[in-house]
């Protein structure tokens, strides 16, 4: 019966409450843990790496645009 319900996306979905609680227990636990995550303080080294990567992206994208404009007009 569950198989048929799953195959047909327009059919009303139903599963006994105790089954739902059992099969989704791990999900609910994981969600609760994720929702309780707080912001991680970044140390100086990590901050430097992230800024470096950001500068890399900006510089490289500028290069790519220059190259594409050259290619389009070449």
């Amino acid at each position: 019966m569950h198989e048929r319900l799953v195959q047909n996306s327009s059919a009303p979905l139903s599963v006994p409450g105790f089954v739902q609680g059992e099969v989704l227990a791990e999900h609910r636990l994981a969600r609760r843990r994720s929702e309780s995550l707080s912001q991680r303080p970044l140390n100086h080294r990590l901050r430097l790496v992230l800024w470096g990567l950001r500068a890399y992206v900006l510089f490289m994208v500028a290069m790519a645009v220059v190259n594409a404009v050259k290619a389009a007009h070449g």
């Binding site: 569950h2 198989e3 319900l5 799953v6 979905l13 139903s14 599963v15 089954v19 739902q20 099969v23 989704l24 999900h27």
Partner: peptide
């Protein structure tokens, strides 16, 4: 939740 529970059940 129900849809996911059905998938998990299978």
């Amino acid at each position: 939740e129900m849809a996911r529970a059905l998938d998990r059940w299978r």
